[in-house]
Design a protein around this nucleic acid. Sequence first.
DNA 1: TTCTCTGCAAATAATTTGCACCCAT
DNA 2: ATGGGTGCAAATTATTTGCAGAGAA
Lengths: 135, 135
Amino acid sequence: MQLRMTNQREMILRELRKSKQHLTADELYEKVKKIMPRISLATVYRNLEILSEAGIIGKLEVSGRQKRFDYEVEEHDHIYCVVCHRVDNLEIDRESIREVGWNSDKGYAVHGYRLEVAGICPECQRKRSKKEKKQ
Amino acid sequence: MQLRMTNQREMILRELRKSKQHLTADELYEKVKKIMPRISLATVYRNLEILSEAGIIGKLEVSGRQKRFDYEVEEHDHIYCVVCHRVDNLEIDRESIREVGWNSDKGYAVHGYRLEVAGICPECQRKRSKKEKKQ
DNA sequence: TTCTCTGCAAATAATTTGCACCCAT
DNA sequence: ATGGGTGCAAATTATTTGCAGAGAA
């Protein structure tokens, strides 16, 4: 099965890269729809799946929430906001994490690992302190 | 709002603890249904949510998949099987991970972090090599 | 008695799939 | 022309919610 570069696929890829963010399928759908109004959400889902399968984009499955897709393919870790669910990249030395290591891998054949940091993003902190003043 | 210990709640808690596994709501539903055939799945969901809210059990949101609930409350990390989605505990020194640290937290107020290791569990490795022999 | 909890069914949210037509190669 | 891709609607999966009656405290 070889990939074809359709207009839809090209546009989805372009918008994701242009955004430099970690977008969900429907966020991306809203963006692309402005340019191709007749595109369907299913097409966005299908393409994101195919593109990440092909290693052209990354797929993020953070904290049991909606999937997000990543313009950046290289393996890296993330920090996310528990309030607004925004996701940012984490610059962390993955090597040193591996060195710290885990012993009891329970006989698993380890494929990879990832560190996920949770917190409140600057914007939500600001909103929150504003609300507290009001009280 | 104070909690009441109903039969349903007690049974859900007992079965989760008895299993010593990381079960999903419907896995637990199947177990409890054998004892209380009229229990509803919604009750299981509601109770798992309430119990984890109360800190009596743990909630796991691993890799964008179905939520799993944890008999063990203390904070710890997990390893999961990419084939069968089974989850096991990881004995790892969380302190040393934190020490390795991350620099660029992008202004987030950090709440916590977790390490998630992916791999293939012993059982699925066995099944897989059996399949390969057949070919 | 009071107020939380339950069962049931319906609603929601995110994602996937079947199908007939379309279009990139 | 061929087989992957698209739009649309319907199906699925996981989870949540409204409501009237049940049962812990």
